[in-house]
C-alpha cells in the first residue's frame, strides 16, 4: 500500500478527530446531565451505596459489568487455549 495514500488518509482522520474534539461542548460543563444527576441523587436510596460509581457499575449498569467479566473470562480462556500444552 502506498505510503502517501495512508499519510493523506491519516491527515484527514487527524483533522476530523481534532475538529470533533474542538467542537465538543466546553470541558467541565456538560450540557445534558439528567441521567448522571439522577445517579448522584438516588444511588444512596435505590442501591444503598455511598459510592455512586460502584452503584452504577454493579447496580444500574450491572449488565455491562457482567459483559466485562465475560470479556475477562473469555480472554483467560483464550490465553489458556493459545498457550496450551499440546500432547503430540
Amino acid at each position: 500500500m502506498r505510503r502517501w495514500t495512508v499519510l493523506a488518509a491519516f491527515v484527514i482522520v487527524a483533522g476530523s478527530l481534532l475538529l470533533g474534539g474542538a467542537r465538543m461542548r466546553p470541558f467541565g460543563a456538560p450540557r445534558h446531565d439528567l441521567m448522571d444527576r439522577y445517579f448522584n441523587a438516588w444511588s444512596q436510596t435505590e442501591a444503598a451505596t455511598s459510592n455512586v460509581v460502584t452503584a452504577i457499575v454493579f447496580d444500574y449498569r450491572g449488565y455491562d459489568t457482567l459483559g466485562e467479566a465475560t470479556v475477562l473470562f473469555t480472554a483467560v480462556i483464550g490465553v489458556a487455549l493459545v498457550l496450551r500444552r499440546l500432547k503430540r
Binding site: 436510596t45 442501591a47 444503598a48 451505596t49 459489568t65
Partner: peptide, 24 residues
C-alpha cells in the same frame, strides 16, 4: 448488607449496598 444507606455525606456503613458488596 441490607441496611439502608444514610442520605448525603456520611461516615460509611459496611452493611449497606445489598448485592453490590457481594458482587464486588
Amino acid at each position: 448488607f441490607g441496611a439502608a444507606s444514610p442520605i448525603g455525606p456520611n461516615a460509611g456503613f459496611l452493611s449497606t449496598g445489598g448485592t453490590v458488596p457481594l458482587m464486588n
